[in-house]
Amino acid sequence: MESGLEVAGMEALAERVARMSAGDLMVVLAALLRGGGEGELADGLARAAVEPKCAAEAVAAAFRAAV
């Protein structure tokens, strides 16, 4: 996620995620998919019809589950 969002360190990552754009959301979603073994799905994300609200909820759920 750090490289995709062009930040260095957890503090910078947290700051960036706090003001996430739609593009940032797609980067994070793709990183989570790849981390979960879904590289092919992550690669096709740019061509997928992604509902931003659902994507944001999925990302938030993933972060909550990791804590």
Rank of each mutant, 00 (worst) to 15 (best):
M10W: 05
V67N: 02
E57D: 13
A62N: 03
S3G: 06
C54W: 00
L5K: 07
A46M: 08
E2T: 14
A8M: 05
M10N: 04
G35E: 08
A60L: 14
E2D: 10
V17K: 06
L13S: 05
L32T: 01
V50S: 01
A61N: 06
A22W: 15
A61T: 12
A58P: 00
A58F: 00
A61H: 05
E51G: 06
M26K: 02
A14M: 15
G44N: 10
V17Q: 08
V59R: 04
A55L: 09
C54I: 02
L29D: 00
A66C: 14
V50G: 00
G39I: 06
F63R: 03
A66R: 13
A8I: 13
C54M: 08
R64W: 02
G37H: 05
L41W: 01
P52F: 00
V7K: 03
A55R: 01
A60G: 12
A61Q: 08
A31T: 15
L33V: 11
V28I: 11
G9E: 06
E15T: 15
A65S: 09
S21G: 13
E57P: 02
L25D: 01
R16T: 15
L45N: 11
V7F: 06
E15P: 08
L45H: 15
V50N: 00
P52D: 03
M1D: 07
A31D: 11
A8H: 07
A31K: 07
A55M: 09
E6V: 13
G4C: 11
V50E: 00
